[in-house]
């Protein structure tokens, strides 16, 4: 079995700061990490590898430095890593991204047919959750999103059964390979690479493809050109004009404070009390 896992290198959003004055992103010193949701999918793929003996290839589109993130995936147990990196990919939105990635997956499939593709539930920078379905469409894969559990995979019968999160319940779905899976967070816990794997990764050379090597012919379906969406403006959320009416509890007893609060509350919002009663 051959599994491709799509991983994206993203800025650690918890560390991104907005410039207090210019309202622009301050990337200085913001570390790049593997999109956390992708690691859930990678771990799931690696578990299939452990169970059924599959070959796992990680794939990313991004700048050269994204190779670092791919190496982390190799350390965790991926057999091969491909980075498609090319100026023509710059400014891709999800449509252009899924175009480039699906082309690369088809190219990877030429050496060894691909049975499953994993994507993360979403990214923490784009977080659109669109690239996965996009790839599935383009490659005609059965699409299994928000998977909380992979019940069984039968490579011989080319059959897979999964639990898929729906609103208010879980669908138990059975379908055929090849398919695309996006995993739900918390579906598994990431492994800790062994020393041998760390050495293998440290010495591994990530395969880098430009658009030609990735088998992409229609360059104007990549990058900005191939992106229907246009980001018109980026801005910081407006602070509210009205600030909270403050009740200082210091010095007062809790019950005094609470009484003050409730009388103000129900005086200013007469309906509220009735509504709470219902």
């Amino acid at each position: 079995m051959h599994i491709v896992v799509c991983v994206k290198q993203v800025p650690d959003s918890s560390q991104i700061r907005v410039h207090p004055v210019t309202n622009t992103i301050m990337r200085q010193g913001v570390p790049a990490v593997v999109n956390p949701y992708d690691l859930v999918s990678l771990e799931e793929a690696l578990r299939l590898k452990d169970r059924l003996g599959a070959r796992v290839t990680v794939l990313s589109m991004g700048p050269k430095m994204a190779a670092e993130s791919l190496k982390k995936c190799v350390a965790l147990g991926a057999d091969a890593a491909v980075l498609i990196t090319d100026r023509v990919f710059a400014g891709s939105d999800t449509l252009a991204t899924s175009y480039a990635l699906s082309a690369a997956i088809r190219r990877i499939g030429q050496d060894e047919p691909v049975d499953m593709v994993f994507c993360g539930k979403q990214t923490i920078d784009g977080d659109t959750a669109q690239v996965g379905p996009g790839i599935a469409r383009r490659l005609g894969l059965q699409q299994l999103t928000y998977v909380s559990r992979i019940e069984t995979v039968d490579p011989a019968a080319r059959e897979i059964v999964v639990h898929r999160r729906a609103e208010g319940g879980v669908q138990v779905l059975q379908t055929k390979l090849p398919c695309l899976v996006t995993m739900l967070e918390g579906a598994n816990t990431l492994r800790f690479a062994s020393m041998d794997d760390m050495f293998r990764a440290a010495r591994y050379d990530v395969v880098e493809w430009d658009h030609k090597a990735a088998g992409i012919t229609e360059v104007d379906r990549c990058g900005l050109k191939g992106s229907p969406t246009v980001v018109k403006k980026v801005f910081a959320p407006q602070p509210r004009a009205i600030k909270a009416e403050m009740l200082d509890a210091t010095g007062k007893s809790a019950s005094e404070t609470v009484d003050a609060l409730l009388s103000t509350l129900f005086a200013k919002h007469p309906n509220l009390e009735a509504e709470i009663r219902q």
Binding site: T94, L95, A129, Q130, P133, Q143, T145, A166, T229
Partner: peptide
């Protein structure tokens, strides 16, 4: 989970822009 799954699929087939 339904809307996002469906939107991603049809936006690709229709090859148009989708904002999440």
């Amino acid at each position: 989970t339904l809307g996002r799954d469906l939107a991603g699929a049809i936006a690709t087939t229709l090859s148009t822009g989708l904002t999440a």
